[in-house]
Amino acid sequence: MRAGGFGKHGIRFRAKQAFGVAGLMALGLFGGTAQANPQPGQLNLTPGVTTYSHIPYMLNNVALGVCVVIGILVFGAMFIAMFRFRKSRGAVPEKWSHNTTVEIIWTAIPVVILISLAWLATDGLRKFSDTTGSQMTVKVTGYQWKWRYDYVDYLGKPLHVDFMSKLDDQSNATRQLDSGLDPYAVKADGEQTYLLNVDHPLVVPIHTKIRFVITADDVIHSWFVPALGWKMDAIPGVINAAWTNINTPGIYRGQCAELCGQDHGFMPIVVKAVSQDDFAKWLADQQKAATPPAPAPASTAAAPAQATAQVAAKQSTQG
């Protein structure tokens, strides 16, 4: 299933290159349905791949549309004024400097527009903030400069799977100052993944409401995958909650979005969404690998228990 997804991506990519600049830009703006990861010439937000991600996308489009219409009206009036009321055309200045009716109108109309935008945004925000009813919990911890993922529970059962996720070696070698390596040559599965690939992606099932609890160990980071439709700061001492429910299998790439030191630009995020069956298999493999020799060092072994405790505390305060 995943292979099919990549094939489609690859074809789309090659076709796009043939289009030339205008076609490329048109695709960038309107052809974004399956393109969750950044594309050359992309002009707009991605609609994303989750049950929530169309909300910011639509809100963005509506707000942009409103701004464009207001812009055309205001700037249009301005340009008409600049052509009609020029001294060089013999325009004689008028004396008026006040018009109550017009002023009331142009105060009231924006208020109405703002109320409708606020209504849409509030509705979206309420959906986003509802993290209840999740079937899975993943704890995300930001470090300088890598991410740690703890699978806390899945379908009501506690899990003990955790790993670090950092920039892949190929990107890391290429990104060194004057490395002489070509960023365009960094590829994985047919995608150009320079600075957007990791050694261990976060593997999650589709059609599952996943709750993320997000924190950090040293400085503030921010967990941001555009295809999921949100970012959430990872703050030491604070546990933030967010959720996602991915519709389409695929690999979704993002980056740390809060300045966190010298390698802020080099701690990407990769979410690999797979079918629930594939996820069950992956999970079994992970647990098998983890149990017999207990390879994890003491500090990391203690962490999932601690994470569970913190999540429980968070749940009880939200309760």
């Binding site: 950044p38 991605t46 150009q192 555009p226 980056q255 300045l259 802020h264 630009g265």
Partner: peptide
């Protein structure tokens, strides 16, 4: 604007090739 909408974070010294043209 386009770079931001495509998901390029601010305050990064280097970026994916998708962001190269803009």
């Amino acid at each position: 604007h386009f770079l931001g909408l495509a998901g390029m974070p601010r305050r990064i010294p280097d970026y994916n090739v998708a962001f190269a043209n803009f």
